[in-house]
Design a protein around this nucleic acid. Structure first.
Length: 369
DNA sequence: CACTCGTGGAT
DNA sequence: TATCCAAGAGT
């Protein structure tokens, strides 16, 4: 099971990698110091997300919530707003839950033991290893996609990196590589190499500081590694959304539930359109059954495609008007579109909101009389 | 284990 | 244009 460890000079590998890292590492906001809270937030944001995307979010997050206490006390609305557009929204809700526990149970000090830190919401094997090594210099492996790609090539590991069992294989031998080095440097150096040199496509072997240690390069099969099973194409769903205006020129917005897709984000009321049913009729029925509203469905005004990792929404947007309406509806607000700044929307509904602002906000606008 | 959970950029 | 994919975790 254990790969070609006997063929590699670990001491030389460590030196070559860390020396390269210290000359070529990027200056990133979360590398300014080793504050455990900052490192933690950065690692949550960086999950499945590119560095360039994270940087502005991280800087704003640290302005809004500079300490665990600040984040623990913040309102959900503002926390969601800080994450708007970043995706995987359960990350930030779990982070706030975890930070509240740190404040209450650990006096605001991020725990430095693996057992305690790993028990926090949203802290999995990777994040635990990353924070404990980077912030506390604990010799813990931090196995992400970069690390599996780099070591797959260096050690000619052909296990499918999409499987959970494979991550444990990497964790089993990495402690040998953490002996005699600063864990914060070694772990980050591996990830930095994966991000800048040992890339998924067209790896920069000619510039690689550890090329002479690389078994895949020696055999010329670096492009074949790592092995990763393909995912199936996402399924498409037809959706209908409605911009519903009342005679006060307010629009109905709905907040999604606690769990599942886009949890706790705001949206225009929307519903899946079953095969064989018209979207107009679907919207009509939906407004009646979900909100008790009899509305006149107007023209379709926009089409929006929302691509997730595992599904696709094709949303047709309708305008509609209502004369008689309840002021208070469960999980909903009547708002002027210009007064939604504090609410967090998924990107698809940001597009609808933007179009509405440009179209203007008069009652019945767009309806042919 | 297999599936859910976002988004924008690179190729 | 289609596909892949990025510092994963929860269920």
């Amino acid at each position: 099971m254990e790969p070609h460890l006997q063929k590699i000079d670990i001491k030389e590998f460590q030196h070559d990698l860390i020396d390269w890292y210290n000359h070529h590492k990027r200056e990133l906001p979360w590398r300014k110091n080793q504050d455990p809270y900052r490192v933690w937030v950065s690692e949550i944001m960086l999950q499945q997300t590119k560095v360039d995307t994270v940087i502005p979010y991280f800087n704003r997050f640290m302005e809004w919530f500079p300490t665990p206490e600040a984040l623990a006390e913040a309102k959900e609305e503002k926390v969601m707003k800080a994450w708007e557009g970043l995706g995987y929204y359960s990350r930030v809700r779990n982070l706030q839950t975890a930070v509240k526990e740190v404040v209450e149970e650990y006096g605001g000090n991020v725990p430095s033991s693996k057992k305690e830190f790993s028990s926090l919401k949203g802290v999995g094997p990777y994040t635990a290893g990353a924070v404990l090594s980077i912030a506390y210099e604990k010799p813990e492996p931090a196995v992400d996609g970069n690390v599996m790609r780099v070591f797959s090539r260096i050690l000619l590991i052909k296990e499918d990196i999409g499987k959970a069992k494979t991550r444990r294989l990497f964790e089993s031998f990495i402690p040998k590589f953490l002996e005699g080095v600063k864990p914060s440097e070694f772990n980050q150096a591996l990830m930095e190499l994966g991000a800048l040199v040992c890339t998924p496509k067209s790896p920069g072997c000619l510039l690689c500081p550890v090329q002479k240690h690389c078994a895949a390069r020696a055999e010329g099969i670096q492009d074949e590694l790592p092995v990763k099973e393909k995912k199936k194409a996402p399924a498409a769903k037809e959706m209908a959304a409605v911009v519903l205006k009342n005679k006060k020129s307010q629009t109905l917005f709905h907040q999604r539930g606690e769990k599942g897709l886009l949890a706790r984000l705001w949206e225009y009321p929307n519903v899946e359109v079953p095969a064989g049913v018209s979207p107009e009729e679907t919207v009509q029925t939906y407004l009646k059954e979900s909100f008790g509203i009899e509305a006149d469905i107007g023209p379709k005004v926009q089409k929006v495609q929302h691509v997730f990792s595992h599904l696709v929404w094709n949303i047709t947007v309708y305008e509609a008007v209502v004369l008689e309406f309840p002021e208070n509806i469960q999980d909903c607000k009547w708002l002027d579109p210009l007064e939604t700044e504090g609410l967090a929307f998924p990107v698809s509904h940001q597009k609808i909101l933007k179009a509405q602002k440009e179209r203007g906000n008069q009652y019945g606008a767009g309806f042919k009389k």
